[in-house]
Design a binder for these strands. Structure first.
Lengths: 182, 182
DNA sequence: TAGGCCATGTAACCGGTTACATGATTAG
DNA sequence: CTAATCATGTAACCGGTTACATGGCCTA
C-alpha cells in the first residue's frame, strides 16, 4: 500500500492539512495501516494536487501558522475506490519481540523479563487506544474493525499474561551460560 | 530489525547458504520476522564475513551447483546476543485488508466478500503452517512462539468467521451507489 | 527562558527490492 | 521440451526516512 492511497483514504474521511495527516497516521485510527513521515506527506500532497486528485486551500489561523487544508476531489475519490476493489495484499506482521523470545535460551532471564513486560505494557496501551477510537466514532465499518482489534489484541494479551512464566523458565535454564558471554 | 541481525539469527540455529537463508525467511519459521531478498542476502553475507561475524566454506554437490555454506563465528554469536539484549521495537502490523474493511461502505458487497474470503483462506494457511513448524521442531522457545501464534491467529480466524456477515451488511447498504461509480 | 506544539517544506541518504545474467539438473 | 528447483551474484532503481531550515505562539 503506497502513501498516495493512504493519503487519499484519510482525506476521504475528512479534510486535513499535511500536519494533520501525519497526526492521523501516527496517533489516529490510521496508525494501524501506516506511519508516514513529513518527508513523504508534503511531496505526495503536491503530486496528488497536480494530478487533480486533491485540492488545497490556504487557511489563516489566529495565533498559529497558516495551514493548507486539502480535500479529496471526485476524481481522487473514484481512484481511491478503484484501488480498494483490488484484492488487498496479505497482512504484514513483524515482531522483534518474537525473535528475542525464540532465542530465549541464549539470553538472560532479565532480558526476557524486560522484553516481556515492555510488550505487555504496549499491548495494554494499544487496547486502551482502540477503546478510545471506538468511543469517538460511530461509523459502522470503523466499529467493526475496532471490535476486531479488541478481540485479537485481547487474545494476545491473554496469552502473554498466562504464559509469561513459562518463557521466563526457558531463559532461566541457561542464564549462567549467557552471563559468561557478557 | 536489520538484515544483518536476522541473518545472524538464522545462522545461529543452523549453518546455511544464501539460498537456504532465503528459504528460511520465506517459508520457514523466520517468515514471521522477515522476508529478505537475494539482493540483500548475498551482499550482507559478504559484509558479515569481512567483519568476521560468519565464515563460509565452498561445498561441492553432485548434480547441483556448488554452494557456499556459512557458519556463525563466536564473534558473530556474541554480537547477536548483544543485539538481543536491547529492548525490542514494538511489533509492526500493517493490513491493507483493514483499510478496505474500514471503507466497506464505499465499495460493493462483492469486493468485501472477495477480500474477506481471501483473508480467511490466508489465515487458515498460516495456522496450518505454524502447526507444521510445531511438529518439526521441539526446541522449547520455538514451541512457545508457535503456541502464541496458534492462539492469536486462532482468535483472529474466529472473529472473521463469526463477524463476516455483519461487515458484508455494511457494504450492501450502499452497493448501488458504489456501482454507479464504476 | 526553555521546551513543546503548531506548521511547511527540502536535500541527502539508505535499506531494500526488482530485474537481470548465468547455468546445470530433474521432474512432469 | 518445458518448467521448476538449485545456486550465486550485481546494477539500477525506488520508496521512504532523517535531519535540517524556519519561525511564531503558548505553557511550565
Amino acid at each position: 500500500m503506497n502513501t498516495q492511497t493512504l493519503i487519499l483514504g484519510i482525506l476521504n474521511f475528512e479534510d486535513a492539512s499535511g500536519y494533520e495527516i501525519k497526526k492521523q497516521s501516527t496517533d489516529g485510527a490510521f496508525r494501524y495501516f501506516v506511519d508516514i513521515s513529513y518527508g513523504t506527506i508534503y511531496p505526495t500532497l503536491s503530486k496528488l494536487e497536480a494530478e487533480g486528485m486533491v485540492f488545497g486551500r490556504e487557511e489563516a489561523q489566529s495565533g498559529k501558522p497558516d495551514k493548507k487544508v486539502y480535500s479529496i476531489t471526485e476524481k481522487g475519490r473514484l481512484e481511491f475506490i478503484k484501488t480498494l476493489a483490488q484484492p488487498p495484499a496479505p497482512d504484514k506482521f513483524k515482531s522483534e519481540f518474537l525473535l528475542v523470545a525464540m532465542c530465549a535460551d541464549l539470553t538472560s532471564e532479565e532480558t526476557i523479563r524486560h522484553a516481556l513486560d515492555k510488550r505487555i505494557i504496549e499491548m495494554e496501551e494499544t487496547i486502551a487506544h482502540i477503546r478510545e477510537l471506538r468511543k469517538e466514532c460511530e461509523h459502522p465499518a470503523t466499529q467493526w474493525i475496532t471490535s476486531y482489534g479488541l478481540h485479537v489484541k485481547g487474545a494476545d494479551l491473554d496469552f502473554f499474561k498466562t504464559n509469561r512464566d513459562s518463557l521466563l523458565a526457558i531463559a532461566k535454564n541457561k542464564s549462567n551460560e549467557a552471563q559468561a558471554a557478557e
